[in-house]
Every structure is written in C-alpha cells, then in structure tokens.
C-alpha cells in the first residue's frame, strides 16, 4: 500500500522519539481533548481517519523540511492538489498547507503543513519540484503575505498588481 510506504518515508523526516510521542492514533480526532490544549501541535506525522477528515496522512514539518517532504511525495507519484494558508493569530503563527493526492486507485491523500512565525513568514518554494505550485504559492502570498523563498515570479496573481494587503489575515479590515 502506498499509504504505508509514504508514511514510512515521511517518518524518516522526524527524530524517532518525537514521532512516538506525538502519534496518538485515535486521540487526535477527539476534538474535546484537543480543545483543552491550546498549544499548537508539535511537528510530527499523524495518521488521520479518512472518513472524518478526508485525508490519510498529516505531516507537520519545519519550514526548512518542506522541500524534502514534498520531494518524497514527488518520487511516489503524487500530484499537487493545492497550497493554502491558515492564519493562527492566537498562536502568532501562519500555517502553510500542501495537499497531495494520487491519480491511481491506491487512494492516499497527504497533507503537509508547516508553521512559520507570523511576523516573518518565510517558506522555501517547491516550484522546483512541482511546477504547478507556482500559482498556488503566488495565491498564498497574495492572501497571507507568506514569502516563498526562491519563487521565480512572486507578484500578485488574483489581487490587483499593486496590492500590498493580505485579505485572509485575521486582522485585515477592509
């Protein structure tokens, strides 16, 4: 199964002890428990319940590990679904979410996320690996102001070309 293989491959990104500590298979879906601990989740790989969340693997990596993690998925023939961001203003963090899926019937959806500091959001680009990430990264830059280091053409895509605001930030007021 490709899911298992990918999981194994992705797990190599994390130090062994960390993975064991942060892989409570069932507990994660328990929303009440999660609500009690407001601290953002530490980096690690989670296996999610597909029926509830709609994806299988959820890997949170450090910003500098993104390229490596995406490279693993590229080798396993995943296609890029989307890239987006989430503004966790309470934690003073921005999250970048990469969605990957597969064309064949061996279903496996993988989510890779990374959290960066809200004041200095910088993530390396993955356009070198997936050319299709280009627009997705530009869009994320438009909406959240996340800078993708090494992106070839990081100018506003959906917003007007002189836009200097980032509408999806929670503190943005129109």
């Amino acid at each position: 199964m490709i899911c298992e293989e990918t999981k194994r491959a992705l797990q190599k990104l994390f130090p062994a002890d960390e993975v064991i500590a942060e892989t409570p298979e069932e507990a994660v879906d328990d929303s009440e428990k999660k609500a009690k601990k407001p601290v953002p989740r530490a980096n690690g790989l989670l296996e999610r319940d597909y029926a509830v969340h709609g994806y299988h693997l959820d890997a949170q990596v450090a910003a500098d590990q993104v390229v490596e993690a995406v490279g693993i998925l590229d080798k396993a023939d995943f296609f890029i679904e989307s890239i987006t961001g989430v503004d966790w203003i309470k934690d003073n963090q921005l999250e970048v979410i990469y969605d990957f899926s597969r064309y064949d019937f061996d279903l496996c959806r993988v989510v890779i996320r990374t959290r960066v500091d809200r004041n200095n959001p910088e993530v390396p680009t993955i356009t070198e690996i997936y050319a299709g990430a280009n627009w997705h990264e530009r869009e994320t830059h438009d909406f959240f102001g996340i800078k993708f280091i090494g992106h070839p053409h990081l100018i506003p895509l959906l917003l007007p070309e002189d836009a200097d605001f980032h509408p999806l930030l929670k503190d943005y007021k129109a």
Binding site: S31, K34, V52, G54, Y55, D99, S101, V111
Partner: peptide
Amino acid sequence: PPEGDYYQA
C-alpha cells in the same frame, strides 16, 4: 462543526 480540519473532493 467541531474543531478540526476537513477536506472533501
């Protein structure tokens, strides 16, 4: 919806 992250294609 309860807190969490959901995806549907």
